[in-house]
């Protein structure tokens, strides 16, 4: 909680580039989902949409979604080709709303503000327990 609060405080009060903010938020998210892993294998469907994610030192990017621990999806059509049992994270509210039972959450910008949403049922499906500072971002349904 403290880490995220500090981050949000930093976002709100100090000048930081949106890309740096995104990177830090992705870092927190990845660490919250895989708290015991030093490196996490990641797949994404569009490098242009996940520029900040690519800066993560803890991430190893893979070509096949099968090889990844976590999938980052920005296009709806990608859902047709990815294994639904994987941990999926999206980057828009509309996509998350549509695939709220498949994706565990999403991170997106709304009115110039960073917004995080985790889906309770998806988290439970993957036996993910978020740290207390991220609990407030959990939604039952959209």
């Amino acid at each position: 909680m403290k880490r995220l609060s500090i981050l949000l405080f930093t976002i709100l009060f100090l000048q930081a580039s949106p890309l740096d903010t995104e990177k830090e938020i992705y870092k927190i998210i990845v660490h919250a989902i895989f708290p015991h892993k030093q490196t996490v294998t990641i797949w994404f469907d569009d490098p242009n949409e996940f520029g900040a994610l690519m800066r993560l030192k803890e991430a190893v990017f893979v070509q096949s979604p099968e090889d990844a621990d976590m999938l980052f999806v920005s296009h709806e059509k990608s859902f047709q080709n990815i294994p639904s049992h994987k941990i999926i994270f999206v980057n828009s509210y509309s996509l998350l709303k549509k695939y709220q039972s498949t994706a565990i959450g999403g991170f997106f910008w709304q009115k110039g503000r960073p917004n995080i949403v985790f889906m309770r049922k998806s988290l439970q499906k993957h036996h993910i327990i978020l740290p207390p500072d991220l609990q407030k971002y959990i939604e039952d349904e959209l």
Binding site: L8, K97, Q110, K111, R113, N115, I116, V117, Y137
Partner: peptide, 16 residues
């Protein structure tokens, strides 16, 4: 009422 980036009814918005 925003012309762009419009939020849905009851959608959460992370604010200060």
């Amino acid at each position: 009422g925003s012309q762009e980036d419009r939020g849905e009814f009851n959608q959460k918005l992370d604010v200060d």
